[in-house]
Design a protein around this nucleic acid. Structure first.
Lengths: 214, 214, 214, 214
DNA sequence: TATGAATGAGGATTCATTCAT
DNA sequence: AATGAATGAATCCTCATTCAT
């Protein structure tokens, strides 16, 4: 009903577009509702497509989910610049990405739910998505360790743990904003919170630590 | 695992013990798997009891879940001392509770999953558990605001946001430990991490803020 | 909790009374709700007795139902006076019984539902109660044929069919009153309707028929 | 019994036919057995279809039941000619419908059970079907009041009660035939009984009443 | 390529019944 | 005699998936 067959080419009644629509609808539902409470019927309905196409394009609900997770986690990674050396300006960019993620008006296309919630919600279900999840987090941690943790902090476990704590901090903020959308933390737009978060981040990043990390 | 009735009198056919076993099995499954992926059949099987007893003792799966959440969230609250005045030593106790929650060897009876995960996992499902979830978090925030945030910080939104950020920090740490159980943050037992977390907490708690908390 | 053991006799903690209470509770529920929607638990609760006693005293739910049906159908029969000869005054009594059954304030102990509804509701379920039902109706028909149908009507099928139609008339009135309790027929207390019903009955009972009854 | 697709085009995989089969099977079971004793599994089996299709086509067991009731009650109504004025010939038609309903060979497709039994059997279960039931009866009563009750009977309650009693009479006959299928009333085909019923009907319809219909 | 009809497995729930005490 | 804990079968419903067209 929505499809005007303006295209005469027999091949592709616009399979790509359909696929894309399905993927997007899936992303939304999975992010907001979680895996189980999302039904393929609903996804198909949202995408204005037939259920069976989910099988055709993605094989199964689980595969579709995996693909969504892949997409989302890729998004969460900063830039996967492979070098161990930090580039100038990379810190800036990474922090900006993280802080932007805290803005209340972001993620409209995800149904106003931070995509990280998708990562947090489902755990231990299947090996594939679990791996993806971990990869994503690890990649984020690596980026932070490389370009945010101060070069003054000696190489070793300490650097790593600091990076992990920074990620933890942002994760916690995302979660709390999500769960208490009416509280101050969520309401207090941008400025004050952002500054304070940056302060904490810098403390974690810079201050020479005394701890031997067990 | 089969029912170590080592204690006093093995009640008649021991409804209490059965109820307890069901509750514990439910707690485990709900915490680790979340609501949907937990089936009543599995709970009953774990508890070595008949499914119908879930209805008998709890009314429904949802009620059982609610009871688990209640129990868990009660536990998560520090002490619900009602006064608005902070008692001496309360800060100590509260921080200890929070920090203990980060220890890797805790939560054995929850299947080695931090019970907070139960609170985080499920969102937006039904009003009842949502409410419980929020209550739990809000109660924690209130406790922190009362007894951790420094009296030096002026009354007002600022105090509240600081408390929220502290809770966010701990939440993030719990989540990260849960998702990356093999990483340093999870492995680095106690000392170093604990100290650093305390540092951050103090910064959040004490430092006179510059932000106006719009 | 409700039972004061004022009775010292070891035998009979008043089994009879319990049995009676169960039977009465069952009658009410079965009459008002029908067989399926009546649960043994509810019966037991109404009777303030333990469920298991239903098995003890009646064997099973079905048996209990059968017993209720027996009791009710016995009640529905006029007097099972066996003779084929009608006694003087019997017509009067029988009609009175039938007409009384139409009074709105009768059947309080049945939950204000005409016990005949119990007979009508469940059909074809099991042979036992079906037989009881039929017996009851047939007995009623026989009574009417003997003592209401005018002696002037020649012996034969005609007499019988007339009796059946009289019973049908009363049955229909009961049903309609039950199903439309707010309609005029139900509201129009006693006098007018009663008289009209009597008129119809007399027409069915007395008027020499022309029909050969196939 | 297996699907006599003798008609035109055997639709694709023929959803309509399946739907129809389900509806018919449901009608039979509901009519003969009542709501509770009818299981969706049995309906599906009778219709040689999958249980899930009941959900697909009707939403739920209750909806299916409602649809059956609607269908049946529609059938029971005479013609829902809306005018308050009676058309000539309408009485004829209505009485014929009613009397035809008494014929033993009718209702083959209902499992030889008068569809009115469906209406009578279930009472007080749920508001929806209760309403349908009442509507059906009330509609029938209204029709009778309009086109059977003699114009000579003054407007007012009296007319209404007369109509109700006529409906009651037919109802009783249906019930008795159903419950005693081997008795004379059921066996006495057509002529005699029909005539007598018409006599009673006329008496109810025409005779100037003495009762004030308080 | 796309459609939607049909399937089957699995979930929560409900009850009558049985069995220790 | 009476209690109430435990059982197992059955019911409705929900979904992902498969199969004709």
């Amino acid at each position: 009903m929505a499809k005007e067959a303006t295209d005469n080419a027999p091949r592709r009644r616009d399979a790509d577009a359909t696929r894309r629509r399905l993927l997007q609808a899936a992303r939304r539902r999975f992010t907001v509702l979680g895996y189980e409470r999302t039904t393929t019927r609903d996804i198909a309905a949202d995408a204005d497509a037939n259920i069976s196409l989910i099988k055709r394009y993605f094989g199964s609900k689980e595969n579709l989910y995996a693909e969504v997770v892949t997409e989302v986690t890729k998004f969460l990674d900063g830039q996967p610049s492979e070098g161990t050396e930090s580039e100038p300006g990379e810190e800036q960019a990474l922090l900006e990405t993280l802080l932007n993620g805290l803005r209340a008006d972001a993620w409209a296309e995800y149904g106003h739910t931070h995509p990280w919630m998708l990562v947090l919600r489902q755990t231990g279900s299947d090996p594939v998505t679990d791996r993806l999840r971990r990869q994503s987090l690890l990649s984020g941690i690596a980026s932070v360790e490389r370009s945010v943790v101060s070069p003054g902090v000696a190489e070793g476990q300490s650097r790593r743990v600091r990076a992990e704590m920074i990620i933890a901090l942002y994760t916690g903020l995302v979660v709390l904003r999500e769960m208490l959308p009416k509280e101050l933390l969520a309401a207090a737009q941008d400025d004050g919170v952002t500054e304070e978060v940056l302060n904490l981040t810098r403390q974690l990043a810079d201050r020479p630590s005394t701890w031997p990390a067990s």
